[in-house]
Computed example of a mutant assay.
Amino acid sequence: MTTPLKFGAFLVPLHDINEKPTLSLWRDMRLIELLDELDYDEAWVGEHHSGGWANILAPELVIAAVAERTRRIRLATGVISLPYHNPFMVASRAVQLDHLTRGRFILGVGAGSIPSDPHMLGIEQTETRPRTAEALEVIQHLLGSDETITRKTDWFTLQDARLQVAPYSPGGIEIAISSALSPNSMRTAGRMGLGVMSFGSPRPGIPLPDLGRQWRYAEEAAAEAGRTVDRADWRITQTVYVAETREEAYADVRAGFDRWVHGYWEDIFHLPVGIEGVPRGQELEANIEMGNIIVGSVDDAVAGIERLQENTDGFGGMLLMAHDWAPWDKMRRSYELFARYVAPRFTGALVRPRLSADWVTANGHLFEAGYQAAIQQAMGQAAAT
Rank of each mutant, 00 (worst) to 15 (best):
T22P: 09
I294P: 07
D233T: 05
D329A: 13
R74H: 09
P207R: 05
E127K: 08
L121C: 12
A65K: 14
G205Y: 10
R307W: 11
P202R: 09
A67E: 12
A222N: 01
E285G: 03
A91Q: 02
A343E: 14
V138R: 03
A161H: 04
L158F: 00
S297M: 07
W53D: 12
P170M: 09
T157G: 00
E276S: 04
G110T: 04
P21G: 07
M290Q: 14
L11F: 10
Q238I: 14
V12F: 15
R227D: 09
V229I: 13
R345A: 09
A176C: 11
L11C: 05
T237Q: 10
Y335T: 03
V298T: 15
R187A: 03
D252S: 08
D39W: 04
T150F: 04
G226R: 09
T101V: 09
W359P: 02
E60Y: 13
D329G: 05
P272Y: 04
P209K: 12
A91C: 07
I294M: 06
R352Q: 10
E137M: 00
V12Y: 12
L35R: 09
Q164I: 10
R72D: 01
Y241L: 03
T70W: 04
V273N: 06
G195H: 04
T3Y: 09
L163Y: 05
M197W: 08
R74G: 08
G190M: 01
L271E: 14
P4I: 00
A384M: 11
R333P: 02
S356Q: 13
P327Y: 06
R30I: 01
T148L: 00
M120E: 14
P202G: 12
G144I: 11
I56W: 04
A76G: 15
L194H: 03
N184G: 08
A222G: 03
I149H: 00
E68M: 12
G200N: 13
I288F: 00
L136E: 04
R93F: 08
E37G: 11
T347L: 07
E289Q: 14
I73N: 12
Q125A: 09
L320C: 08
S169M: 11
E19V: 03
E276V: 06
P59Q: 08
I80G: 01
P272L: 04
G296A: 04
R340G: 14
E127N: 06
G314N: 06
A221G: 00
E368V: 13
W44L: 14
N184S: 11
R235K: 14
L308Y: 06
I375L: 14
S334F: 07
G8L: 03
T237K: 08
N55D: 14
A303L: 07
M331N: 02
W260K: 02
I139H: 00
E33P: 06
K152T: 13
N363E: 01
I305R: 01
P353T: 07
V295I: 14
L194D: 08
L121K: 13
V278Y: 08
S145C: 06
I175C: 01
